[in-house]
Simulated scan of single mutants.
Amino acid sequence: MKNAPPNARTHEGEAKLKLGRHIIVGGTGFLGRSVARRLLKNGNEVLIVARAPAGDSVLMDGARVVHACSEEVKWDSILEPHDVIHYYAWNSVPGTANGDPAEDMRTNVAPLIRLLEAMRKIGPTCRIIFTSSGGTVYGNPKDIPVPESHPLSPITAYGAGKAAAELYLNFYRQLYGLDCRIARLANPYGPGQNIAKGQGAISIFLDRIFQKEPIKIWGDGETVRDYIFIDDAVNGLLAVAETECTPSNWTFNIGSGHGTSLNILIAHLQELVDWQLEVDYLPGRGFDVPISVLDISRARTELDWQPHVGLSVGLKRTFDVIAIQKIDSAIKNRLDDSSTVRKKIKLPPVA
Protein backbone atom coordinates (compact mmCIF):
# COMPACT_ATOMS: atom_id res chain seq x y z
CA MET A 1 0.00 0.00 0.00
CA LYS A 2 1.33 3.37 -0.96
CA ASN A 3 2.37 5.64 1.90
CA ALA A 4 0.76 9.02 2.34
CA PRO A 5 2.98 11.97 1.39
CA PRO A 6 5.06 13.24 4.30
CA ASN A 7 4.17 16.42 6.15
CA ALA A 8 6.13 19.53 5.37
CA ARG A 9 8.78 20.07 8.03
CA THR A 10 10.48 23.15 9.35
CA HIS A 11 13.41 23.81 11.69
CA GLU A 12 14.60 20.68 13.54
CA GLY A 13 11.88 18.50 12.01
CA GLU A 14 8.83 20.43 13.23
CA ALA A 15 5.79 19.31 11.26
CA LYS A 16 3.40 21.88 9.78
CA LEU A 17 0.22 20.09 10.79
CA LYS A 18 -3.24 20.42 9.33
CA LEU A 19 -5.52 22.47 11.53
CA GLY A 20 -7.80 20.37 13.69
CA ARG A 21 -9.60 19.92 16.99
CA HIS A 22 -7.57 18.00 19.55
CA ILE A 23 -8.24 16.45 22.95
CA ILE A 24 -5.21 15.90 25.20
CA VAL A 25 -5.89 13.44 28.01
CA GLY A 26 -3.26 14.11 30.65
CA GLY A 27 -2.55 17.53 29.21
CA THR A 28 -1.05 19.02 32.36
CA GLY A 29 1.95 16.66 32.47
CA PHE A 30 5.30 17.11 30.78
CA LEU A 31 4.36 15.50 27.46
CA GLY A 32 0.81 16.81 27.39
CA ARG A 33 1.82 20.43 28.00
CA SER A 34 4.53 20.25 25.37
CA VAL A 35 2.20 18.84 22.72
CA ALA A 36 -0.55 21.30 23.65
CA ARG A 37 1.77 24.28 23.23
CA ARG A 38 2.84 23.08 19.78
CA LEU A 39 -0.74 22.50 18.66
CA LEU A 40 -1.85 25.91 19.91
CA LYS A 41 1.13 27.57 18.28
CA ASN A 42 0.04 26.07 14.96
CA GLY A 43 -3.52 27.35 15.31
CA ASN A 44 -5.29 24.17 16.44
CA GLU A 45 -8.17 23.93 18.91
CA VAL A 46 -7.10 22.15 22.11
CA LEU A 47 -9.18 20.69 24.91
CA ILE A 48 -7.19 19.42 27.91
CA VAL A 49 -8.73 16.70 30.09
CA ALA A 50 -6.92 16.52 33.44
CA ARG A 51 -7.51 14.41 36.52
CA ALA A 52 -6.73 17.25 38.91
CA PRO A 53 -6.82 21.05 38.66
CA ALA A 54 -3.62 22.48 37.22
CA GLY A 55 -1.65 25.41 38.56
CA ASP A 56 -1.43 28.61 36.56
CA SER A 57 2.05 27.63 35.39
CA VAL A 58 0.72 24.77 33.26
CA LEU A 59 -2.33 26.44 31.74
CA MET A 60 -2.01 27.81 28.23
CA ASP A 61 -3.86 30.62 26.53
CA GLY A 62 -6.26 29.24 23.97
CA ALA A 63 -6.77 25.80 25.54
CA ARG A 64 -9.96 24.77 27.28
CA VAL A 65 -9.47 22.63 30.37
CA VAL A 66 -11.82 20.02 31.84
CA HIS A 67 -10.95 18.79 35.33
CA ALA A 68 -12.52 15.46 36.26
CA CYS A 69 -11.62 12.13 37.81
CA SER A 70 -11.27 9.44 35.19
CA GLU A 71 -14.57 7.83 36.29
CA GLU A 72 -16.42 11.14 35.90
CA VAL A 73 -15.41 12.22 32.40
CA LYS A 74 -18.52 12.57 30.22
CA TRP A 75 -16.90 11.40 27.00
CA ASP A 76 -20.16 11.32 25.04
CA SER A 77 -20.46 15.09 25.31
CA ILE A 78 -16.78 15.75 24.59
CA LEU A 79 -15.74 13.49 21.73
CA GLU A 80 -17.88 14.30 18.72
CA PRO A 81 -16.59 17.77 17.80
CA HIS A 82 -12.95 16.60 17.87
CA ASP A 83 -10.62 15.00 15.34
CA VAL A 84 -7.69 13.63 17.39
CA ILE A 85 -7.24 12.32 20.94
CA HIS A 86 -3.74 12.32 22.42
CA TYR A 87 -3.58 9.99 25.41
CA TYR A 88 -0.81 10.68 27.98
CA ALA A 89 -2.66 10.09 31.27
CA TRP A 90 -0.73 7.59 33.41
CA ASN A 91 -0.14 8.09 37.11
CA SER A 92 2.55 5.51 37.88
CA VAL A 93 6.20 4.70 37.21
CA PRO A 94 7.83 1.23 37.26
CA GLY A 95 8.59 1.36 41.00
CA THR A 96 5.11 2.41 42.12
CA ALA A 97 3.26 0.11 39.72
CA ASN A 98 5.13 -2.91 41.05
CA GLY A 99 3.94 -2.05 44.54
CA ASP A 100 0.24 -2.31 43.63
CA PRO A 101 -0.40 -3.81 40.17
CA ALA A 102 -4.17 -4.03 40.70
CA GLU A 103 -4.42 -0.34 41.53
CA ASP A 104 -2.22 0.44 38.53
CA MET A 105 -4.67 -1.37 36.23
CA ARG A 106 -7.67 0.32 37.86
CA THR A 107 -6.33 3.86 37.62
CA ASN A 108 -4.57 3.62 34.26
CA VAL A 109 -5.91 0.88 31.98
CA ALA A 110 -9.58 1.00 32.99
CA PRO A 111 -10.00 4.73 32.15
CA LEU A 112 -8.57 4.10 28.68
CA ILE A 113 -11.10 1.31 28.12
CA ARG A 114 -13.94 3.65 29.15
CA LEU A 115 -12.76 6.15 26.56
CA LEU A 116 -12.52 3.46 23.87
CA GLU A 117 -16.06 2.33 24.70
CA ALA A 118 -17.30 5.89 24.25
CA MET A 119 -15.49 6.10 20.92
CA ARG A 120 -17.06 2.80 19.83
CA LYS A 121 -20.57 4.07 20.60
CA ILE A 122 -20.26 7.22 18.50
CA GLY A 123 -18.39 5.48 15.68
CA PRO A 124 -14.96 6.08 14.10
CA THR A 125 -15.15 9.87 13.92
CA CYS A 126 -11.77 10.60 15.51
CA ARG A 127 -8.40 8.92 15.96
CA ILE A 128 -6.56 8.18 19.19
CA ILE A 129 -2.80 8.20 19.72
CA PHE A 130 -1.68 6.32 22.80
CA THR A 131 1.79 6.96 24.17
CA SER A 132 3.21 3.64 25.33
CA SER A 133 6.57 2.87 26.90
CA GLY A 134 9.30 1.84 24.49
CA GLY A 135 11.58 1.15 27.43
CA THR A 136 9.35 -1.34 29.26
CA VAL A 137 6.87 -3.15 26.98
CA TYR A 138 9.61 -5.16 25.23
CA GLY A 139 11.13 -6.45 28.48
CA ASN A 140 14.67 -7.77 27.97
CA PRO A 141 15.01 -7.26 24.21
CA LYS A 142 16.38 -10.03 22.04
CA ASP A 143 17.48 -7.49 19.40
CA ILE A 144 19.24 -4.14 19.82
CA PRO A 145 17.99 -1.74 18.63
CA VAL A 146 14.58 -3.24 19.25
CA PRO A 147 12.02 -3.04 16.39
CA GLU A 148 8.25 -2.70 16.69
CA SER A 149 7.90 -6.36 15.65
CA HIS A 150 9.60 -7.53 18.85
CA PRO A 151 7.22 -9.49 21.13
CA LEU A 152 5.72 -7.66 24.09
CA SER A 153 7.35 -9.22 27.16
CA PRO A 154 7.38 -6.69 30.02
CA ILE A 155 9.10 -7.53 33.32
CA THR A 156 7.42 -4.76 35.36
CA ALA A 157 3.81 -4.07 36.28
CA TYR A 158 4.21 -0.67 34.63
CA GLY A 159 5.23 -2.29 31.35
CA ALA A 160 2.47 -4.89 31.70
CA GLY A 161 -0.08 -2.11 32.10
CA LYS A 162 1.18 -0.32 29.00
CA ALA A 163 1.17 -3.61 27.05
CA ALA A 164 -2.38 -4.34 28.23
CA ALA A 165 -3.45 -0.89 27.01
CA GLU A 166 -1.88 -1.64 23.63
CA LEU A 167 -3.76 -4.93 23.39
CA TYR A 168 -7.07 -3.20 24.12
CA LEU A 169 -6.32 -0.59 21.46
CA ASN A 170 -5.64 -3.40 19.01
CA PHE A 171 -8.92 -5.09 20.04
CA TYR A 172 -10.97 -1.95 19.39
CA ARG A 173 -9.14 -1.32 16.14
CA GLN A 174 -9.66 -4.83 14.81
CA LEU A 175 -13.23 -5.43 16.00
CA TYR A 176 -14.77 -1.98 15.74
CA GLY A 177 -12.61 -0.22 13.16
CA LEU A 178 -11.43 2.56 15.47
CA ASP A 179 -8.38 4.49 14.34
CA CYS A 180 -6.00 3.61 17.19
CA ARG A 181 -2.29 4.44 16.93
CA ILE A 182 0.53 3.67 19.34
CA ALA A 183 3.75 5.60 19.89
CA ARG A 184 6.27 3.57 21.88
CA LEU A 185 8.25 6.42 23.34
CA ALA A 186 11.79 6.26 24.67
CA ASN A 187 12.85 8.34 27.70
CA PRO A 188 11.86 11.98 27.08
CA TYR A 189 13.62 14.86 28.81
CA GLY A 190 14.00 18.59 28.40
CA PRO A 191 12.80 22.03 29.49
CA GLY A 192 9.40 21.95 31.15
CA GLN A 193 9.96 18.69 33.01
CA ASN A 194 9.42 18.92 36.76
CA ILE A 195 12.70 17.49 38.02
CA ALA A 196 11.38 17.33 41.58
CA LYS A 197 8.94 14.57 40.57
CA GLY A 198 11.79 12.10 40.10
CA GLN A 199 10.67 10.52 36.84
CA GLY A 200 13.47 9.35 34.55
CA ALA A 201 17.23 9.28 35.12
CA ILE A 202 17.96 12.69 33.60
CA SER A 203 15.28 14.40 35.67
CA ILE A 204 16.40 12.67 38.86
CA PHE A 205 20.09 13.39 38.27
CA LEU A 206 19.46 17.08 37.51
CA ASP A 207 17.43 17.43 40.68
CA ARG A 208 20.32 15.95 42.66
CA ILE A 209 22.78 18.29 40.99
CA PHE A 210 20.79 21.42 41.78
CA GLN A 211 20.22 20.20 45.33
CA LYS A 212 23.98 19.55 45.62
CA GLU A 213 23.21 15.97 46.70
CA PRO A 214 24.85 12.69 45.67
CA ILE A 215 23.49 11.00 42.56
CA LYS A 216 22.26 7.47 43.30
CA ILE A 217 22.71 4.76 40.69
CA TRP A 218 21.24 1.27 41.04
CA GLY A 219 23.86 -1.17 39.78
CA ASP A 220 27.22 -0.51 38.14
CA GLY A 221 26.07 2.36 35.92
CA GLU A 222 26.25 0.36 32.71
CA THR A 223 22.47 0.24 32.27
CA VAL A 224 21.77 1.67 28.80
CA ARG A 225 18.75 3.74 27.83
CA ASP A 226 17.47 5.68 24.81
CA TYR A 227 16.95 9.37 25.66
CA ILE A 228 14.96 11.72 23.42
CA PHE A 229 14.80 15.52 23.69
CA ILE A 230 11.28 16.86 24.21
CA ASP A 231 11.14 18.81 20.93
CA ASP A 232 12.03 15.66 18.98
CA ALA A 233 9.50 13.66 21.00
CA VAL A 234 6.72 16.16 20.25
CA ASN A 235 7.58 16.12 16.55
CA GLY A 236 7.46 12.33 16.55
CA LEU A 237 4.18 12.09 18.46
CA LEU A 238 2.50 14.59 16.15
CA ALA A 239 3.86 12.76 13.12
CA VAL A 240 2.16 9.60 14.39
CA ALA A 241 -1.05 11.58 14.85
CA GLU A 242 -0.96 13.08 11.38
CA THR A 243 0.08 10.15 9.20
CA GLU A 244 -2.34 7.98 7.26
CA CYS A 245 -1.52 4.64 8.90
CA THR A 246 -1.63 1.44 6.88
CA PRO A 247 -3.57 -1.58 8.22
CA SER A 248 -0.31 -3.27 9.20
CA ASN A 249 1.69 -0.31 10.53
CA TRP A 250 0.03 1.71 13.26
CA THR A 251 2.67 1.31 15.98
CA PHE A 252 5.85 3.37 15.90
CA ASN A 253 8.98 3.55 18.04
CA ILE A 254 9.81 7.18 18.85
CA GLY A 255 13.31 7.59 20.30
CA SER A 256 16.81 8.76 19.48
CA GLY A 257 17.91 5.37 18.20
CA HIS A 258 21.08 5.65 20.31
CA GLY A 259 21.89 4.13 23.69
CA THR A 260 23.64 5.90 26.56
CA SER A 261 24.80 4.26 29.78
CA LEU A 262 24.19 5.94 33.12
CA ASN A 263 27.94 6.40 33.54
CA ILE A 264 28.18 8.23 30.22
CA LEU A 265 25.17 10.31 31.17
CA ILE A 266 26.96 11.32 34.38
CA ALA A 267 30.02 12.28 32.32
CA HIS A 268 27.87 14.57 30.14
CA LEU A 269 26.35 16.20 33.21
CA GLN A 270 29.78 16.63 34.80
CA GLU A 271 30.72 18.93 31.93
CA LEU A 272 27.92 21.33 32.91
CA VAL A 273 29.13 22.10 36.45
CA ASP A 274 32.42 23.20 38.01
CA TRP A 275 32.33 20.88 41.01
CA GLN A 276 32.91 17.13 41.19
CA LEU A 277 29.64 15.23 41.11
CA GLU A 278 29.29 12.64 43.84
CA VAL A 279 27.84 9.30 42.74
CA ASP A 280 26.65 6.54 45.05
CA TYR A 281 26.41 3.08 43.48
CA LEU A 282 23.73 0.90 45.08
CA PRO A 283 22.80 -2.77 44.51
CA GLY A 284 21.05 -3.39 41.21
CA ARG A 285 17.29 -3.88 40.93
CA GLY A 286 15.72 -6.92 39.33
CA PHE A 287 13.19 -4.94 37.28
CA ASP A 288 15.79 -2.76 35.49
CA VAL A 289 16.27 -3.92 31.88
CA PRO A 290 20.05 -3.87 31.19
CA ILE A 291 19.74 -2.23 27.77
CA SER A 292 16.90 -0.57 25.88
CA VAL A 293 17.47 1.21 22.55
CA LEU A 294 14.68 1.67 20.02
CA ASP A 295 14.89 0.96 16.30
CA ILE A 296 13.32 4.07 14.74
CA SER A 297 13.74 3.11 11.09
CA ARG A 298 9.99 2.64 10.57
CA ALA A 299 9.26 6.17 11.84
CA ARG A 300 12.04 7.57 9.65
CA THR A 301 10.67 5.85 6.56
CA GLU A 302 6.91 6.10 7.02
CA LEU A 303 6.56 9.30 9.03
CA ASP A 304 9.39 11.29 7.44
CA TRP A 305 10.53 11.95 11.01
CA GLN A 306 13.84 11.73 12.79
CA PRO A 307 15.38 13.25 15.92
CA HIS A 308 17.62 16.30 15.53
CA VAL A 309 18.84 17.21 19.03
CA GLY A 310 21.78 15.18 20.32
CA LEU A 311 22.14 14.28 23.99
CA SER A 312 24.90 16.75 24.88
CA VAL A 313 23.04 19.65 23.25
CA GLY A 314 19.73 18.63 24.81
CA LEU A 315 21.24 18.33 28.28
CA LYS A 316 22.83 21.77 27.97
CA ARG A 317 19.53 23.34 26.91
CA THR A 318 17.70 21.65 29.76
CA PHE A 319 20.32 22.57 32.33
CA ASP A 320 20.36 26.23 31.26
CA VAL A 321 16.58 26.57 31.47
CA ILE A 322 16.51 25.06 34.96
CA ALA A 323 19.43 27.28 36.01
CA ILE A 324 17.61 30.42 34.87
CA GLN A 325 14.54 29.30 36.80
CA LYS A 326 16.70 28.86 39.89
CA ILE A 327 18.11 32.36 39.42
CA ASP A 328 14.64 33.86 39.06
CA SER A 329 13.47 32.00 42.16
CA ALA A 330 16.49 33.10 44.20
CA ILE A 331 16.07 36.73 43.23
CA LYS A 332 12.33 36.63 43.83
CA ASN A 333 12.87 35.25 47.32
CA ARG A 334 15.83 37.58 47.91
CA LEU A 335 18.09 34.65 48.65
CA ASP A 336 20.94 35.93 46.54
CA ASP A 337 21.77 38.28 43.70
CA SER A 338 21.87 37.20 40.06
CA SER A 339 25.66 37.25 39.60
CA THR A 340 26.28 35.08 42.67
CA VAL A 341 23.72 32.48 41.63
CA ARG A 342 25.11 32.35 38.09
CA LYS A 343 28.58 31.63 39.48
CA LYS A 344 27.23 28.86 41.70
CA ILE A 345 25.61 27.02 38.80
CA LYS A 346 28.28 27.72 36.21
CA LEU A 347 26.44 30.14 33.93
CA PRO A 348 28.36 32.91 32.15
CA PRO A 349 27.88 36.45 33.48
CA VAL A 350 25.36 38.70 31.78
CA ALA A 351 27.09 41.01 29.31
Score class of each variant (00 low, 15 high):
31 L>A: 15
205 F>M: 08
149 S>F: 03
115 L>N: 11
321 V>F: 13
145 P>F: 08
262 L>S: 00
154 P>S: 12
135 G>I: 00
37 R>Y: 09
232 D>S: 03
71 E>S: 15
297 S>I: 00
229 F>C: 04
120 R>L: 03
76 D>F: 10
250 W>I: 11
98 N>K: 04
221 G>H: 01
229 F>G: 03
183 A>V: 15
7 N>K: 09
225 R>E: 07
246 T>F: 09
303 L>H: 07
343 K>H: 15
322 I>M: 13
298 R>L: 10
231 D>M: 08
53 P>H: 06
117 E>L: 12
329 S>V: 00
213 E>Q: 14
154 P>A: 12
122 I>V: 13
104 D>W: 02
203 S>P: 00
319 F>V: 01
202 I>C: 08
333 N>Y: 14
86 H>D: 06
34 S>K: 10
144 I>C: 01
172 Y>P: 08
226 D>Y: 09
342 R>N: 13
258 H>N: 12
17 L>F: 14
295 D>N: 13
151 P>E: 13
311 L>W: 11
34 S>D: 09
242 E>M: 03
281 Y>L: 06
185 L>W: 09
75 W>N: 10
95 G>W: 12
298 R>K: 06
336 D>N: 13
261 S>E: 01
179 D>Q: 13
309 V>K: 10
121 K>P: 00
96 T>Q: 11
286 G>V: 02
163 A>P: 06
62 G>S: 13
280 D>V: 11
152 L>Q: 12
2 K>F: 11
84 V>Q: 04
318 T>M: 03
217 I>E: 05
326 K>P: 00
88 Y>I: 01
13 G>T: 10
245 C>S: 13
270 Q>L: 00
96 T>E: 09
212 K>M: 06
184 R>G: 11
79 L>A: 06
302 E>Y: 07
225 R>H: 07
61 D>I: 05
292 S>Q: 13
223 T>G: 07
229 F>M: 05
228 I>K: 07
4 A>R: 02
291 I>V: 13
119 M>K: 05
169 L>N: 08
287 F>M: 07
82 H>G: 03
106 R>M: 09
347 L>H: 10
92 S>Y: 14
274 D>F: 02
8 A>D: 09
326 K>D: 06
308 H>M: 12
50 A>M: 02
113 I>Y: 02
106 R>D: 11
150 H>D: 10
30 F>G: 02
44 N>S: 14
190 G>F: 05
71 E>Y: 09
233 A>N: 05
278 E>Y: 01
10 T>M: 02
146 V>P: 00
239 A>H: 06
223 T>S: 08
172 Y>K: 12
202 I>Y: 03
200 G>K: 04
161 G>F: 12
204 I>K: 05
309 V>W: 07
48 I>T: 05
292 S>E: 05
308 H>V: 01
274 D>T: 12
200 G>I: 02
165 A>D: 10
127 R>G: 13
139 G>E: 07
304 D>A: 15
290 P>A: 15
168 Y>H: 15
16 K>A: 15
286 G>H: 03
175 L>P: 00
202 I>H: 04
292 S>Y: 05
166 E>R: 06
231 D>Q: 14
155 I>S: 07
238 L>M: 11
265 L>H: 01
180 C>G: 15
111 P>D: 04
260 T>V: 13
229 F>V: 01
222 E>F: 09
318 T>N: 03
234 V>H: 07
129 I>T: 09
